[in-house]
Design a protein around this nucleic acid. Sequence first.
DNA 1: CGTAAAATTTGATCCGGATCAACCATCATC
DNA 2: GATGATGGTTGATCCGGATCAAATTTTACG
Lengths: 250, 250
Amino acid sequence: MIEQLKPRLDVHNSEMPVLCQACEARHRGICGVLTPSQLVTLSKHTTKQVVSPEQQIAFEGETTKRFANILHGVVKLSKLTADGRQQIVGLQFAPDFMGRPFSKENDYAVEAATEVRLCSFPRSTLEQLTTESPELEHRLHQQTLKELGEAREWMLTLGRKSASERVASFLHFIAMHINPEVSHTHGSQQFEIPLKRSDIADFLGLTIETVSRQFTRMRQAGVIKISNNRTIEIPDMAKLAALTETNIQD
Amino acid sequence: MIEQLKPRLDVHNSEMPVLCQACEARHRGICGVLTPSQLVTLSKHTTKQVVSPEQQIAFEGETTKRFANILHGVVKLSKLTADGRQQIVGLQFAPDFMGRPFSKENDYAVEAATEVRLCSFPRSTLEQLTTESPELEHRLHQQTLKELGEAREWMLTLGRKSASERVASFLHFIAMHINPEVSHTHGSQQFEIPLKRSDIADFLGLTIETVSRQFTRMRQAGVIKISNNRTIEIPDMAKLAALTETNIQD
DNA sequence: CGTAAAATTTGATCCGGATCAACCATCATC
DNA sequence: GATGATGGTTGATCCGGATCAAATTTTACG
């Protein structure tokens, strides 16, 4: 059902300030405002981390000591039952803020789904900044609301949709996040799926076999084209969108 | 699959300020701070509303014009597919804040699950208060984070748990919220289930028949005692908690 | 390149929960 | 008491997706 947890990537011991790759031109040695949608304005003692896929960033249940901005890549949040069944409960994309502020416990595992570049900083920095700037908390609140909306949308998917609808919903979700500027109701799109089949299965509450069969079916139906298992082309987004709430069998 | 939506309860037209039942002794004619866990400090133009079960408070997709504090009762948040499948994506208990601030759209239906007393106020009041007080936004953010945590916990339930585990998880969830001060890992508890079977099914992503069968099974196994379909006694919470992640068949 | 490990696909069978159907209990209204 | 309406339980059958198994493709690396 799940792959065993990999050794933890210790971002906590990397206190040496480094040049933030995303903003070095403007803030030498300090990681500052990166983009208009960047959430946190960082000050000193920031670090950049490169983590490989599957490397664990924080264990479920552990106290959050550091936070980070995602500069590049996709991060998955997942929960486990005692006997090892896994459910991915969220995906985060650049430039999301990562970590649960104000809560002492992470109640899910955080892992890199693809190669990820992070701009990391300690809890104290965040707490100091939020007390100084109400605007910062407002932005964090906005992201939390967005994540809550996505989590609830996904509850509908997990609770009431068939396998074919779940896979269509997944592709629609990924398309929106990988190509946010493009219409997700018309036209064509192309992107790399940032997850392997077992991650998709854990996100959709299905098995890898069922996910694979649904991909095959959608490919045969002409809804998607796949190359290299990861590269997806969707000729007609409207057709895909329709499939997110239409049950297809055999 | 679902019951048809009932006529909307128009809280918007009830602008007449009334005595807030929860705090009249301290703030005559104004709904003020109600309890230590009360989220919003209200000023003028507040109203009190009594809504009956199943009355619709706000439609999915509609712009949120008013917000409210829940003074008593249980409110359910639900989403629908185009063809009418329903999923309850959240339950709110007193003294939760109700409504999505800062987002122009409610993307789910809000209904009273039991009789509910609300302390309602317009969007403008909330926006004014949040700009004046960073502390208020912090409290709202806290609640949003709590709801996000619950939504993600429920994603695990919907995606990876069996019917028996889902029903046990549901009872555990309700027990925690109805009797928050009591241990939910030891001892006994008793409470009224605030939902009917069809609501439970829509919360758990199951059918009413499956929910009913699981209740019967748990009653026969001595994990619960039921009277009047709604009154539940749980002799041993530890046993219930164990069942939330242990699959039981026949 | 060759070989092993990992990831994905495909096939056959099984089973948990959905579906369809009947029945029972409670309550409101005449 | 009769009559629905609403909510809940129980039984029989069916099917979508899980499970078990094996083949195939892709990736990693000497």
